[in-house]
């Protein structure tokens, strides 16, 4: 088993494996997405207080979860890459960052769209939204730092340190923002009172979160394949690939 794992830790073997996995994860993303949207738009009933507008939380909640989760995953891979000097894990971290940033942005945007009918304003300095905004900045910092460094090895390592410093700081930032503004909304998942409705909604959100998860895996794999080709363009295995033959 360990032999197999180690084998796939090398870009040369991971590249074709990733290529085979992408269609499956994409398919799963489509299935979960269809199920989640169907539940969200057709099954879940209209909310008594918030009307139809509340349905945006099916995307908002999943995107927020994903943006936080992806930061942890990114920092994990970056940390592994830094400690064990494994090229693939660092590439994985680099590949995850734009997707994480996208979900953070999506979460902010849908939050604003939800906020307008809910609170009558596009932006409220609520603890959760503010933390999400800071998380978005952390993603941007990571991407900008890696983009500014030409040497890939240095970019990997510097990014890893930043991601790890970020991971230590995320709970501190979240706590401090919460301290700063204790007047925030209750947890989104327990929005409604009727338990039967909550169950459908929870299921819908779960489906959407799974869809985002599968989408992230598929997109990160695509991106990591592109990074591999770019970084190892002079190696023999890339030259022998069918898709790069003239």
């Amino acid at each position: 088993m360990s032999v197999i794992t180690w084998k796939y830790a090398s870009p040369q073997y991971f590249y074709p494996l990733a290529g085979k996995m992408i269609p499956w994860f994409s398919l799963l993303a489509v299935i979960f997405g269809a199920a989640g949207l169907w539940l969200g738009f057709f099954v879940a009933p209209t909310d008594a207080q918030q009307g139809e507008g509340y349905r945006i939380i099916f995307i908002h909640v999943g995107a927020s979860w994903m943006s936080m989760f992806l930061y942890l995953v990114m920092a994990f891979w970056a940390g592994i890459g830094l400690s064990f000097n494994t090229r693939l894990s660092s590439m994985m971290a680099t590949a995850l960052a734009p997707t994480g940033a996208m979900f953070a942005f999506l979460s902010l945007w849908t939050g604003a769209l939800w906020g307008k009918p809910m609170w009558g304003t596009w932006w409220v300095w609520d603890a959760r939204l503010t933390s999400e905004l800071i998380l978005f900045f952390l993603y941007l910092g990571f991407i900008a730092l890696q983009a500014a460094i030409d040497e890939p090895r240095r970019a990997d390592k510097a990014g890893a340190i930043l991601a790890l410093v970020g991971v230590v700081n995320v709970p501190i930032i979240y706590f401090s923002v919460k301290w700063w503004n204790t007047l925030h909304q209750g947890a989104s998942v327990s929005l409604t009172q009727a338990p039967s409705m909550a169950k459908t909604m929870l299921l819908g959100m779960l489906m959407m979160a799974l869809c985002f998860w599968m989408y992230s895996v598929a997109v990160a794999l695509m991106r990591v394949r592109a990074i591999m080709l770019e970084r190892e363009r002079h190696s023999e295995w890339v030259a022998n690939l069918r898709e790069v033959q003239p």
Binding site: L140, G141, A148, A158, G166, F175
Partner: peptide
């Protein structure tokens, strides 16, 4: 230290450190 000798280090350093400064600012 992270932006040492990096292109556009001056602007980058603010992008990296400002989010991390937030707890200090709040308290």
């Amino acid at each position: 230290a992270l932006t040492l000798g990096v292109r556009g280090g001056g602007v980058l350093v603010s992008l990296l450190t400002l989010p991390l400064y937030i707890p200090a600012l709040i308290f």
